[in-house]
Structures are given as structure tokens and as C-alpha cells.
Design a protein around this nucleic acid. Structure first.
Length: 474
DNA sequence: TTTTGAGTTGTTCGA
DNA sequence: GTCGAACAACTCAAA
């Protein structure tokens, strides 16, 4: 009886799954397999919370597969050993998996092929394969706007056809499976794992009674509001495919006509495709700057400041609120990510890789491509050719994007009684008001660890220096 | 090959 | 408070 392995990696879904469909098309039986890879689960960039989300996702996937009459096999170890073992035990003649483009994934998959494992990679992580969108001369785009234009012209939304959930999954009986480990970290309460939850969220965002997507363009930048879809963890593990999301937006536009909110939201999906394409085509970005001259920045890298930043004790309320949201929930609003990241890189002059690693250790949605792209954008070392002196002012950002300070008060209870007039910059609060509001500087809430104006000048000087010393031979 | 227009998300300064 | 200019000069994409 012919048989194929469906090797699940970061595509924990039954709908619109090209690897699954290819495996089903190969033979009468399939082996749904997930390999717990210690190299990934215990890496320095792994996160207990993200691992817990993954395990919960596996439990959901297992139940979904069982509902179709199948089983999910769990194995543990190096895929280079475990995958051939499962292939031998099952007699499978092919292995299908969704292609992933991180450096580790590429090395792993090409090694397996060199070993002779009949591994076939399918598309699906992105809507457009990273090597498909290229300039006229065949080289990849490095600027978002032209990339997005090419992406849109190559991919008319009306033509997107997500694949159905299979009716039945038949799995050989005799194969052993480990249990799904119970993780030390709790399942993240804000993000119940699983494909059903992802689909519910997608529909609630697009079509719910309030249709949040229609206000997305106005509300997406406001961390104090609930204006985003919060689907990122689900894309991260493929509990929802990008194509399903894009097709749902296309449906909406067909029903109700063009909408600004839908367009801006779709653009965010294209950003995701862009950064995956950057990582795939320029793998050096995971270790170094996209632009080599910025590898010469003289970072200060003060561990004490870094620790204060991690703990949300920088003395800048908007930065600290962001970092505490991250610590407490494993998720952070996009605007907050930019503000917090900019503060670390520009105000503290700490290497963006330190921040990148910390975010990966905390974020449930932590994705190598998007996280790296975002950090390099903030650091000014990435694909964005904008001027390096664009340094966020955390006070202005705070007043602009958290005007009532609801976000600050939510995550920093010690500031809850501080008057709005002072809450964005509590160091300006007169001593009597500090006592009155129960928020004394240096006691209940820290004094700022750097002065904005001085830090800004220092960052400008460091970047200027890096640029001028980048001349060859000097 | 050369030229031209443009580049997610900004800040500061001075009128 | 609001507005426009300056910030500094580079790289990319496409004609």
C-alpha cells in the first residue's frame, strides 16, 4: 500500500495545506509526523512561551486529525535520524513538507536530501514563493514598495484558491508515537492555539458585527486600542495560511467594495512576504547587517541598561509599558515594538541583535524573518534606505499614539494615579504631585536611565562615525 | 548606460 | 499650537 509522510513543521493546519494535499495525492495512506527537534526547542532564540503555544497547537492538530480518522505521530530527536527512521518503518516512498527559509531550515532540508530522503518541499508559508518575485534582471527586490507592486501584479487576489480540508485521513496502524510533552510554561491565555481559533479570529476581524478591519488603517498604530487582528502567532505556526487570510480579504472586497482598512491590512501580509523573501535571498541578515557598513557601529552594549530595558524599568513609560506587555503576554503591539526597539538601539546604543534575541525569547509570534526585518529596519541597518537620523522621540511617540495614556496605565500600575499632564514624562512631575499620586521618582518608578536629547546626539555621532569609517582602506 | 524619481511607520527648529 | 523646511546624502528600480 503506497504511503507518504506529511512532515509538519510550521504548518499546523488542515485547510489550505499544500504539503498535506501532496501527501494525500501520493498514495492511499499518509503519516502525519511532527518531530520535536531539540536544536529548535532549546536554542538560544527559543522561547518557553512560544514552545507552549506550539505544544498546544499540536494538541489541537492531533484532535483535528483524529476527527478525520487519522493520527498524528510525534517523535523526538534530530530529523536527520528520525525522519529516515519513520520513512523506513512506514514504507513511505515520499515525504512532503512546507518549505521554510530560515538558515537552519534550509541546512536541515538540504542535508536530508543529500542523505537520500525523498523529501519534496511545497509552497505555502507565503502566498508568493520568495524566488518568484524578482526584478526584470532576475535579482530580488530589496525595497518594499516596488516589491509590493510586483507582488500585487503577480497575484490577483481574485485568483487565490485556498485548498479544502480533506474529508478523510488514513494512517498506518503500526507506528509508534510519543505523547505531546506538557510544557513547563502555561499555554498563553491570550492566544488559544489551533486552527479553529485562528479561523474564528480571522472572521471576527473581517466580518464580525463591528468589522474591525474597516477601521484598521486608523486604529492599527494605537497600542491603547484593540485595532489589530492579533493573528501573528497563528501565521507563525501556520495555524492559518497567509493565502486563506488574503482570500478572505478578497471576498470582503468583492462583497462590499474597496476599503482602505482592508488594503492597509493586506499590505501587512505583503510585508511578511517581503521579509521572508529578504531572509531567503540574503541569509547573512540573520547574523549581520543587511548593509555591511553598519556592522561598524560602536555599540555601548551596557548590560545594566539592557537589563533595565528587558524588565521595563527604563524610566520612559511608553517603553516600559511595551516591555511589560511583552513579558506578561508574549505579544506586543507593532507600534510599541518600534518604540521599544528604537529606544534600545538608538538611545542605549545596544546592538540590535541583543534586542532581536530577547524578542525571540519572549514573543509567541517570534518569527526569524519578520523579527529580523523589523529590528534591522529600526536600527537603520536594513533594507530601508531612509536616513539614519530618524530617531524616535519616545515622549512624542507616547503622546501621539497613547494620547489618554490608557496603555501606559494598563501595564504600569505604579503610574495609574499620575496626572495625564505628566504621565508621558514623569520626571517633570513636581515632588508634591509625585507624593500625591503615589509615584515617587526613583522609588515607585525609576528615573530615566538616559536623557533623550543627549542620547539622540550620541546615536547620531555613532552612526555618522560608522558611515565615514566604512570607506574602504581607511 | 544614464538619468530620474522615490524611499512604511520621524524629529527638530524657527517662523 | 501649527506649519514647512532641514536633516545628509544614498541606494534602488525602472524608464
Amino acid at each position: 500500500m503506497s504511503c507518504a509522510v506529511w512532515w509538519v513543521r510550521r504548518d499546523l493546519r488542515l485547510a489550505d495545506n499544500q504539503a498535506l494535499q501532496a501527501a494525500l495525492g501520493h498514495g492511499e495512506q499518509i503519516v502525519p509526523l511532527f518531530i520535536l527537534d531539540p536544536k529548535l526547542l532549546d536554542s538560544p532564540k527559543a522561547s518557553p512561551r512560544r514552545n507552549a503555544f506550539l505544544m498546544a497547537g499540536l494538541r489541537a492538530l492531533k484532535a483535528d486529525i483524529e476527527r478525520l480518522g487519522g493520527r498524528l505521530l510525534i517523535r523526538r530527536g534530530d530529523p536527520a535520524q528520525e525522519l529516515p527512521r519513520v520513512v523506513a518503518e512506514s514504507g513511505a516512498t515520499a515525504v512532503f513538507a512546507e518549505e521554510d527559509f530560515s538558515s537552519y531550515a534550509r541546512r536541515r532540508d538540504s542535508q536530508l536530501r543529500r542523505q537520500g530522503v525523498p523529501l519534496q518541499l511545497t509552497a505555502g508559508l507565503t502566498i508568493q514563493a520568495p524566488d518568484l518575485i524578482s526584478k526584470a534582471d532576475g535579482t530580488p527586490y530589496t525595497v518594499f514598495t516596488p516589491f509590493s507592486r510586483a507582488w500585487k501584479s503577480r497575484s490577483p487576489l481574485d485568483l487565490l484558491q485556498p485548498l479544502p480540508v480533506p474529508a478523510q485521513i488514513r494512517v498506518p496502524e503500526h507506528l509508534d508515537s510519543l505523547p505531546i510533552p506538557a510544557e513547563a510554561a502555561q499555554d498563553p491565555p491570550h492566544f488559544p492555539a489551533g486552527e479553529a481559533e485562528a479561523i474564528n479570529r480571522l472572521h471576527a476581524f473581517l466580518q464580525g458585527p463591528t468589522s474591525p478591519v474597516d477601521q484598521y488603517h486608523e486604529r492599527r498604530d494605537r497600542p491603547d486600542l484593540d485595532g489589530t487582528s492579533q493573528l501573528s502567532p497563528y501565521y507563525r505556526f501556520g495555524m492559518l495560511s497567509a493565502r486563506t487570510a488574503a482570500a478572505a480579504v478578497a471576498d470582503l472586497v468583492r462583497q462590499r467594495g474597496e476599503r482602505q482598512g482592508a488594503d492597509v491590512w493586506l499590505n501587512e501580509l505583503i510585508w511578511r512576504e517581503f521579509y521572508i523573501s529578504i531572509l531567503a535571498n540574503f541569509p547573512h541578515v540573520s547574523r549581520r547587517s543587511f548593509r555591511p557598513q553598519f556592522d561598524r557601529i560602536a555599540w555601548v552594549n551596557d548590560p545594566v541598561s539592557f537589563d533595565a530595558w528587558c524588565q521595563g524599568k527604563s524610566g520612559y513609560p511608553i517603553v516600559d509599558a511595551a516591555m511589560r506587555q511583552l513579558r506578561q503576554t508574549g505579544w506586543m503591539h507593532n507600534r510599541s515594538r518600534m518604540i521599544a526597539a528604537s529606544f534600545l538601539v538608538k538611545h542605549l546604543l545596544i546592538d540590535w541583535r541583543w534586542g532581536e534575541r530577547y524578542f525571540m525569547q519572549q514573543l509567541i509570534d517570534g518569527d526569524p524573518a519578520a523579527n529580523n526585518g523589523g529590528w534591522q529596519w529600526v536600527a537603520g541597518t536594513g533594507t530601508d534606505a531612509a536616513p539614519y537620523f530618524r530617531i524616535f522621540n519616545p515622549i512624542l511617540q507616547s503622546k501621539k499614539f497613547d494620547p489618554s495614556a490608557d496603555y501606559i496605565r494598563r501595564w504600569l500600575p505604579e503610574l495609574s494615579a499620575v496626572p495625564l499632564k505628566y504621565i508621558h514624562e514623569p520626571w517633570r512631575m513636581p515632588a508634591p504631585i509625585q507624593r500625591q499620586s503615589g509615584c515617587r521618582l526613583g522609588i515607585e518608578y525609576p528615573a530615566p536611565i538616559v536623557d533623550h536629547a543627549a542620547a539622540r546626539e550620541r546615536a547620531l555621532a555613532a552612526y555618522r562615525q560608522a558611515k565615514s569609517s566604512a570607506l574602504p582602506g581607511i
